[in-house]
C-alpha cells in the first residue's frame, strides 16, 4: 500500500505544513482523536502525529506537523506526489463523543489546533454546540482558524502579542466563557503540555470535566513498549492505547513534560547532523 501525498500546504512557512495523504484504509476507520505513526525513510524513526482531518470519500487523511527534529524536517522535504514510507493507523482510542445538552469548548494551541479541529468537527457532526478557543504567540503562528470557523459555532482567538484576537492566553478566554452565562458540558484541550495543564486547572475550578490529548513519546503505538506511559490518577496508563485522551484533572503533567525530554540531547544531535548534511529543504 503506497501512501501518496495528494496536497501539501505550508501553514507557517518553514515551520508547519499540512499534508493531505491518500490512505483509504486509514481514512475508512479514522475517528476524531485518532493518530498515526509514520516513518519517512528506511532508517527512520517512528513518530506519532494526530489526524487533523479525514475525507472519507476521497480516501484521505490530513496531518499537520511542526518541524521540530530530524523526522519532521525530513517529512518537510516531501512534496505532493511523494510517498510516505510507513504509515500506520488509525491508532489510539477515539474521542468519546456523544450528544451534549450544553456547548462543548475545544481549546487548541500550536499544531494542537489542527488536531483539535478533527475533534471539534466530530462534536459538530454529532449535533453539539461547539466553541473553539485557539491561541498562538502571534497571528503569523496561528493556524486552522478558517477551518475551525466552518465547524465551530463560535471561534475565540488569543495571541500573546495581541496581533489577532485577544491579547493574552487561551485560558483567559476559557475562564471568561466558563464564568459567563450558560453551562458548558465539557472542555477539551490539545496543545503544548503547559497549556493543557493550565486549561485543566481552569476547567477544574469551574467543575467542568476536561479531556486532554497527550503527546507522549511513542514507539510502536499499539501498547507493546510502555514508552508512552503517563500517570493518570496515580495509575500508569499507556497513552497510545489507553489514550491519548485522558481526564485532565488526573494527569501528572509535570511528569509528562519531563518524560518528553528523555531523548532531547540525541534529538538535537540528529537534527544538527541533518542540517550539516545539506539536505535540500526548499520543499516549500
Amino acid at each position: 500500500m503506497v501512501h501518496r501525498i495528494v496536497r501539501k500546504r505550508p501553514l507557517i512557512p518553514g515551520r508547519t505544513s499540512e499534508l493531505v495523504i491518500y490512505a483509504p484504509h486509514i481514512a475508512a476507520k479514522a475517528r476524531p482523536g485518532n493518530f498515526v505513526i509514520l516513518r519517512v525513510h528506511d532508517k527512520g524513526e517512528r513518530i506519532p502525529l494526530t489526524i487533523a482531518n479525514v475525507e472519507r470519500n476521497d480516501g484521505t487523511i490530513t496531518l499537520v506537523y511542526l518541524v521540530l527534529g530530524k523526522t519532521t524536517a525530513l517529512l518537510d522535504t516531501l512534496h505532493a506526489g511523494d510517498a510516505i514510507l510507513d504509515l500506520c493507523g488509525p491508532l489510539g482510542k477515539p474521542t468519546a463523543i456523544r450528544r451534549r445538552p450544553a456547548p462543548v469548548v475545544c481549546v487548541g494551541g500550536g499544531t494542537g489546533i489542527a488536531a483539535m479541529h478533527h475533534i471539534a468537527k466530530g462534536h459538530r457532526l454529532a449535533g453539539n454546540m461547539v466553541i473553539g478557543i485557539i491561541g498562538a504567540r502571534s497571528k503569523d503562528l496561528l493556524l486552522f482558524e478558517p477551518e475551525l470557523r466552518l465547524v465551530c459555532h463560535e471561534v475565540l482567538v488569543a495571541t500573546d502579542d495581541g496581533s489577532r484576537g485577544r491579547k493574552g492566553l487561551v485560558t483567559a478566554l476559557l475562564e471568561e466563557r466558563l464564568a459567563g452565562e450558560g453551562r458548558v458540558a465539557e472542555v477539551l484541550a490539545v496543545g503544548p503540555v503547559p497549556m493543557m495543564a493550565a486549561v485543566s486547572e481552569v476547567a477544574g475550578r469551574f467543575g467542568v470535566p476536561c479531556q486532554v490529548s497527550l503527546n507522549a513519546i511513542m514507539l510502536d503505538g499499539i501498547g507493546m513498549c510502555g514508552a508512552c506511559r503517563v500517570t493518570v490518577g496515580g495509575e500508569t496508563r499507556f497513552a497510545c492505547v489507553d489514550g491519548p485522551e485522558f481526564d485532565g484533572a488526573k494527569v501528572d503533567f509535570r511528569e509528562l513534560s519531563q518524560r518528553l525530554t528523555a531523548f532531547r540531547p540525541q534529538e538535537r544531535h540528529a537534527y544538527e547532523e541533518l542540517e550539516k548534511s545539506h539536505v535540500c529543504r526548499c520543499a516549500n
Binding site: K43, G44, R46, K70, L219, C225, G226, F263, Q266
Partner: peptide, 25 residues
C-alpha cells in the same frame, strides 16, 4: 521496559544512531 529498550535497538537499530534515527543512550 525490556520491550522498549530492545525494540529501539533491534527494530530501530538504535545501536547505529545517528545513522539510524531511533535514539537510545
Amino acid at each position: 521496559s525490556a520491550n522498549e529498550y530492545l525494540t529501539r535497538v533491534n527494530l530501530g537499530r538504535a545501536y547505529a544512531f545517528p545513522e539510524w534515527d531511533t535514539p537510545v543512550y
